[in-house]
């Protein structure tokens, strides 16, 4: 894990009115690393992801992408988001476009690729998530799992430096979760840099290089999966892990 820093967050704080969403969060993401953020609902995990690609503004703190501060005034936010892929809980495919067109849109409008080149690249990404045969389907014609895989392909097509996954499987029926986690595990093996918020403990344990446990707007502890799952340092981490294994069962394989 000596490789270079891709994304670095320093002392991030986010406040909505009276509510402190998170306070003083610092996090380093290295190239090729898969980080899984776990923790109870409503502890600011999703907001943290949205802040990292500037969809939401932090109140204070700095974010660096490959050493360049992206929270600095005058930063071109669109260029930043182009380099940071994001996958949402509820897929958010563009409903009026086919799977292929969903993946192509960013290529033609943001990267300004010629149409034919964009189409080839988009087909390549759809193949990567195993959906080349669904290219002409509209979102409403796809299952939830397929929609989420198209959403992953859409983000991958932009050749992002890091991918953010915001609870990518929590809107899915249980039998569809596996196909999405499978695609994500493959991405991790291909050395994509990933930051994943999820409740899938099986996936976290098998795929993550590092687990971050967040509660009430701060990072309680972080470490390698085996350390964190077997030897949690904090009582709150133990408690959470105990509850979640009760709830979801111990054996969940991606």
């Amino acid at each position: 894990m000596a490789s270079s820093l891709i994304l670095q967050a320093k002392n991030l704080t986010k406040i909505y009115g009276e509510n402190v969403i998170f306070r003083d969060i610092s996090l380093d993401v290295r190239k090729g690393e898969t980080i899984v953020i776990i923790g109870p609902s409503g502890t600011g995990k999703s907001t943290l992801l949205r802040c990292l690609n500037l969809l939401t503004r932090v109140n204070s703190g700095q974010i660096f992408l490959e050493g360049r501060e992206i929270t600095a005034p005058g930063t071109n936010e669109d260029q930043v988001r182009e380099q940071i892929g994001m996958v949402f809980q509820n897929f958010l495919l563009f409903n009026h476009l086919t799977a292929l067109e969903n993946v192509m849109l960013g290529l033609t409008k943001v990267k300004k690729l010629p149409k034919e080149q964009a189409r080839q690249k988009a087909m390549q990404e759809l193949s990567r998530v195993g959906l080349a045969d669904r290219a002409g389907h509209y979102p409403a014609q796809l299952s939830g799992g397929q929609q989420q895989r198209v959403a992953i392909a859409r983000a991958l097509a932009m050749d992002p430096k890091v991918m953010l996954f915001d609870e990518p499987t929590s809107a899915l029926d249980p039998e569809l979760i596996g196909e999405v986690l499978g695609v994500m595990a493959q991405l991790a093996r291909d050395n994509m840099t990933m930051l994943v918020v999820t409740h899938e403990m099986g996936f976290a344990r098998e795929v993550a290089d590092r687990i971050v446990f967040m509660e009430k707007g701060s990072i309680v502890e972080q470490g390698a999966p085996d350390d964190l799952f077997e030897r949690p340092q904090h009582a709150r981490t133990r408690e959470f892990l105990w509850k979640i294994t009760e709830l979801y069962g111990k054996k969940e394989k991606p």
Partner: peptide, 16 residues
């Protein structure tokens, strides 16, 4: 609002 968020997330400008 989700569609706007998704569009911004792949780097489209607001107008795009």
């Amino acid at each position: 609002a989700g569609q706007m968020t998704a569009a911004r997330a792949i780097g489209l400008t607001r107008l795009q």
